[in-house]
């Protein structure tokens, strides 16, 4: 499974959303499922998945699915464009 698909599954599991609802424009606090509590669960899930530890500033900046992929690039997690 590629990184993009794995990330989608992490979002789906943490935010309790159907995988088909995980799109680039899925946004923090716009989608009611993506609240601050689930956000921290999502961070833990992503860190576990890619074996990284993100900076606090990056956690705060993680405002959409697309933005999350961009941020993960800093941690050498690559996504097919």
């Amino acid at each position: 499974m590629d990184n993009s698909q794995q990330l989608k599954e992490a979002f789906s599991k943490s935010l309790e959303l159907d995988i088909k609802d995980i799109t680039d424009d899925l946004a923090y606090s716009v989608n009611k499922q993506w609240d601050s509590i689930r956000h921290m669960n999502l961070v833990a899930e992503i860190e576990d998945l890619f074996d990284i530890m993100m900076d606090t500033e990056d956690i705060i900046d993680m405002s959409s699915f697309a933005k999350t992929k961009e941020i993960l690039g800093k941690y050498d997690v690559k996504f097919d464009t």
């Binding site: 921290m40 961070v43 860190e47 576990d48």
Partner: peptide, 10 residues
């Protein structure tokens, strides 16, 4: 606390 809680959350 901030950093520890993140490791513990996992």
């Amino acid at each position: 606390m901030q950093s520890a809680s993140r490791l513990m959350t996992r």
